[in-house]
């Protein structure tokens, strides 16, 4: 089974939830947790363990100036402005290149070949016997994290229970992460901002046909508006995590509150079993 933890809004506690959730479930079965928030991956901050690092690369063009006659067809074709053809040379901007391979196809002189360029990394770390953390990390200054998300998800393939932690928002990286999941947990907070963005997230999962439920984090008890929305949208509220200074403090230090407060582990396991019942998966 593949679960995805998502939220329209950033900072609702998605990673906090994912880390505690995955760790709690791993007490009774094997779990692979995948950090797909490749622009700001944080899950590794909660866990220790030796990690194996592998590069994520994309194919970028190399120009053979012996063969190039500066005809300009590659620059004209490139929709991303990554190639400029000067009177005496070619300039290539790797940060604008989407690695589509089109320039190589249009070149009439076979002057373009391709080479691999590293844009990020995948860290694969066994946290303990039952929990494995895979993190996708986009290099700073790189605009496109999609290949890194794909690589991180690929690394987790073949396992029975995979939990994807998505980046915030509703754009392409989020879609890439949610795709292929059996169930989505939407983490929100009880403010008007949280609700506004929960609505967007609910729209995305609905569009992708992924069933979903809600967790309200940092709840101060004033959740009426969020509850009303969830009722209307048919979203089950699985759990409320109260605003609690102790939880906030543990969190800030990079500690997991379910370790210090083990009663939460049971609640996370119950939540997981609840999801299994809803999706028809075996716990």
């Amino acid at each position: 089974m593949k679960l995805v933890v998502a939220s329209g809004k950033g900072g609702t506690g998605k990673s906090t939830f994912s880390a505690n959730f995955a760790l709690s479930i791993s007490r009774c079965r094997d779990v692979v947790l995948v950090d797909c928030d490749v622009e700001e991956p944080n899950l590794h901050l909660f866990f220790s363990g030796d990690m194996r690092e592998s590069d994520v690369t994309v194919q970028v063009p190399v120009f053979d100036m012996e063969r190039c006659d500066l005809c300009g067809k590659c620059g004209e074709f490139c929709r991303y402005g990554a190639i400029a053809v000067l009177p005496e040379k070619i300039m290539f901007f790797h940060d604008l290149c989407h690695a589509c391979g089109g320039c190589r196809i249009v070149c009439p002189n076979e002057a373009i070949s391709e080479t691999e360029r590293v844009i990020g990394k995948v860290w694969d770390a066994p946290v303990d016997e039952h929990l494995r953390l895979i993190s996708g990390v986009l290099n700073e200054g790189e605009p496109n994290g999609i290949p890194v998300i794909m690589a991180a998800k690929e690394a987790a393939e073949g396992n029975d229970l995979i939990i994807y932690d998505s980046s915030p928002g509703t754009a392409c990286p989020v879609i890439e992460t949610i795709e292929g999941s059996d169930y989505a947990v939407l983490v929100t907070e009880s403010t008007p901002f949280g609700l506004h963005d929960l609505k967007l997230a609910a729209e995305v999962v609905q569009k992708l046909g992924v069933p979903a439920g809600v967790v309200i984090n940092r709840s101060d008890g004033k959740d009426d508006e969020t509850e009303a929305f969830c009722r209307e949208a048919g979203l089950e509220i699985h759990m409320k995590i109260p605003f609690d200074r102790e939880i906030a403090r543990l969190q800030s230090r990079g500690d997991l509150f379910s370790v210090a407060m083990p009663e939460w582990q049971e609640r996370f396991v119950e939540l997981y079993e609840d999801i299994c019942t809803r999706t028809g998966g075996a716990p």
């Binding site: 950033g10 622009e39 700001e40 496109n144 915030p168 800030s252």
Partner: peptide, 28 residues
């Protein structure tokens, strides 16, 4: 926007200054 990818880069382009809002957590 949050993050460091394309939308952030598009936001910062052409600005005179940025104010980065952070919070006191390891991930912050």
């Amino acid at each position: 926007p949050p993050g460091i990818g394309c939308p952030l880069i598009a936001t910062v382009t052409g600005m005179d200054a940025v104010l980065i809002v952070t919070e006191p957590s390891t991930s912050g």
